[in-house]
Design a protein around this nucleic acid. Structure first.
Length: 507
RNA sequence: GUCCCCGUCGUCUAGCCUGGCCAAGGACACCGGCCUUUCACGCCGGCGACACGGGUUCAAAUCCCGUCGGGGACACCA
């Protein structure tokens, strides 16, 4: 079964050489974060594209933990990554917790697996021991920098003889192992960026094994990709310059490399800088805490570098699985625009039915200590219904704290604007009406209030706004009658008395 | 500095491969209006871009060359 993604979409997007998938096997992709921090927005985007690509093509999505840097890796980060991925709904078919045919999926647990490849490289003369000390390397680099030469390793130990090595080792020198970069240019065929050529003399013999014997990322990563049968490596464009290294290793070892696709970077500002804390929250967990819905974040993330056409941009996960492909991934970086995320989030919150929205909002009420007093489910749903589509994030729910507590201040601007003329008189009139209503429900309240306002001969707004300020301290918010019902007669009357007294003290 | 990538409204993007349908379309943001007890939603309208310069062509956002600008990588990090 030959698959050809260049024909997968009727509007192939990239010009130049047609890159087809040289594979007839089922697709296998992987997301391989290093657990040195929580799941970053950029990482989540990479994970999402891999996941969608796998789901779209009926392939396998693998989670692998690339923790070859033991010093910086932590279990806490690993757990955080799992949590964030689960929250986003990016489930993995193989990987930690779920296992799979290539267990283990955590590199630090893969032990000696890499050794035989290193040995093979050494035996075939494709790698060599390098005895240069870190300080010497540093020196060479600074010198190169000053002399404006490329800073790569100049190949000092490349042609050492057996005797040289013996001597160096006799001096007690430790050695790293470097890959011997092959002659000739390395051609990268990228599913997003097309064909990129790296001349051999611009590449240097990089270290694949530390002097303490542990292999480095650029080696383990591609080795695991090969061992795990990865067909497509989809990752951020910041890895583009590592690709010729991986290709060189494959070439030296005689392996067919996976296809690759480099995703444009996620930027933090229009200046073009990579997204960083300086630009705001960068971890998926933070957005979760800030009250964003996973479906909103997914929809937002997928549009960072991918588009479907010129009209649709709101997609459910199922639609994304159906429509997503690498064909329509763009080449240029995209700025993370929080405003757009907020808009999308508001959209998805509105789409939640009342019960689901209430459930979603409850944790945020608790976090705001607004549920100390027991509230009935019915009341809560009524409250959420009244708030309606005024939420951009779930956390916004706490702006309506005045429905839970009497502890609120009158907004000075609202006071200035709406408590003019004879506010106390107006509020007293309203108080009398509301106090006299027999059944304290929305219809009779509404009818009585309107009747009173009409009889008093004032405009609706001139009565309603002072009342709103008295009850909530603010000049905007949910329907006033909803607020009145939610508060209940007793609180409404209390707050009116308090406001009237307050006004009399001011004047 | 060296290598590599990128360059359409402020932002996300459609269009570019296969030149004419583009006096460049949509969305977010912003501004104005309508609706309304208010705010928000919604609806209507407005502002606003082919980085620049050459070339090819009857015709260029689209093809070619150059310039400029931005970014990434250059670790015994990943």
């Amino acid at each position: 079964m030959q698959q050809d993604i260049s024909k997968a979409h009727d509007k192939p997007r990239h010009k130049g050489v047609n890159i087809t998938m040289a594979t007839d096997q089922p697709i296998r992709v992987r997301f391989a974060p290093s657990p040195t921090g929580f799941l970053h927005i950029g990482g989540a985007r990479t994970a999402l594209f891999n996941w969608l690509f796998a789901r779209h093509h009926g392939g396998t999505f693998i989670l692998r933990i690339d923790d070859t840097d033991e010093a910086r890796s932590t279990d806490e980060s690993m757990q955080g990554i799992y949590d964030s991925m689960e929250w986003l709904g990016l489930d993995w078919d193989e990987g930690p917790m779920v296992g799979g045919p290539h267990t283990p999926y955590i590199q630090s647990e893969r032990g000696e697996r890499y050794h035989k490849y290193v040995q093979q490289l050494l035996d075939t003369g494709n790698a060599y021991r390098c005895y240069c000390a870190p300080e010497e390397l540093d020196q060479m680099r600074t010198l190169a920098r000053v002399e404006k030469r490329p800073q790569g390793y100049p190949g000092k130990c490349r042609y050492l003889t057996e005797a040289d090595r013996h001597k160096l080792e006799g001096e007690g020198r430790k050695s790293t192992i470097r890959l011997k970069i092959p002659e000739g240019a390395i051609i990268v065929r990228d599913l997003v960026l097309d064909v990129i050529k790296f001349e051999a003399d611009t590449l240097d013999d990089f270290i694949i094994v530390r002097s303490n014997g542990s292999p480095l990322y650029n080696f383990t990563s591609i080795i695991d990709d090969i061992e795990m049968g990865i067909t497509h490596v989809i990752r951020g464009a910041d890895h583009l310059s590592n690709t010729p290294k991986h290709l060189s290793i494959c070439q030296a070892l005689g392996f067919d490399p996976p296809q690759c696709a480099h995703l444009p970077m996620v930027l933090g500002s229009s200046k073009g800088e990579k997204l960083s804390k300086r630009h705001g929250a960068t971890s998926v967990g933070q957005y979760r805490e800030d009250g964003y819905l996973p479906e909103a974040l997914i929809n937002f993330l997928v549009r960072l570098g991918w588009s479907y056409d010129d009209k649709e941009e709101i997609f459910s996960v199922d639609q994304l699985i159906e429509k997503f492909d690498l064909e329509r991934v763009g080449k240029s970086g995209s700025v993370f625009d929080l405003k757009k995320l907020q808009w999308l989030n508001g959209h998805y919150i509105t789409r939640l039915n009342l019960s689901a929205r209430t459930d979603a909002v409850i944790p945020f009420l608790q976090k705001g200590s607004l549920l100390e007093e027991e509230k009935s489910r019915a009341w809560l749903e009524q409250f959420v219904a009244a708030v309606g589509d005024r939420l951009e994030t779930l956390a916004d729910i706490t702006t309506y704290s005045y429905l839970f507590t009497d502890d609120f201040d009158y907004d000075p601007k609202a006071v200035k604007k709406w408590w003019k003329g004879d506010p106390a008189g107006i509020l007293q009139g309203l108080r009398d009406v509301l106090g006299a209503i027999e059944v304290f429900e929305i219809e009779p309240i509404e009818a009585a209030t309107w009747a009173h306002i009409e009889a008093a001969g004032i405009s609706r707004i001139k009565a309603m706004q002072p009342l709103r300020v008295a009850l909530s301290g603010e000049s905007g918010g949910p329907g006033l009658f909803d607020i009145i019902v939610l508060l209940g007669r007793e609180k409404v009357l209390e707050r009116l008395d308090r406001a009237i007294q307050h006004i009399q003290e001011i004047f």
